[in-house]
């Protein structure tokens, strides 16, 4: 069983057991345009919710990616380093950034569900 949540900063986290896979939303990749560079966290890094964790850059913009929840990074999507275009092609799939072992599942309650996120971006489009 898996469940997807979003943050107001346009990150998503797909939760499977105690592992969350995180990336940026389709809306975010559209807004950024061609992504040229990502900086990803090292596996093993322990972070608190809302810590700055990664950076994503397009030609004319840079955005920080924050930890949607607290936990430990278990894996980074190293393929993005050489092929950042994957984020544009498949933001919700192959363009994932990192996986995190969630230390406090209660924090997921702070996040948006799909409907709430869609309402949020409807106002921003």
């Amino acid at each position: 069983m898996s469940e997807i949540y979003y943050t107001e900063d346009h990150e998503w986290i797909l939760v499977e057991g105690d592992i969350g896979t995180c990336g940026i939303s389709e809306f975010a990749q559209e807004q950024l345009g061609d992504i040229v560079y990502v900086e990803l966290p090292e596996p093993g890094k322990v972070v608190a919710q809302n810590d700055e964790l990664a950076v994503v850059e397009s030609v004319k913009a840079a955005s920080e990616i924050y930890a949607p929840v607290s936990g430990e990074i278990t894996e980074s999507n190293d393929e993005l380093v050489d092929e950042p275009g994957k984020i544009n092609e498949d933001a919700m799939g192959d363009g994932w950034f990192f996986k995190i072992r969630i230390s406090d599942a209660k924090e997921l309650e702070d996040l948006l569900d799909k409907a709430a996120y869609e309402a949020l971006i409807a106002g921003q489009r």
Partner: peptide
Amino acid sequence: LSTREQHIRREK
């Protein structure tokens, strides 16, 4: 690589 620069990154 202008995302390193002030006009985009500002205080960072």
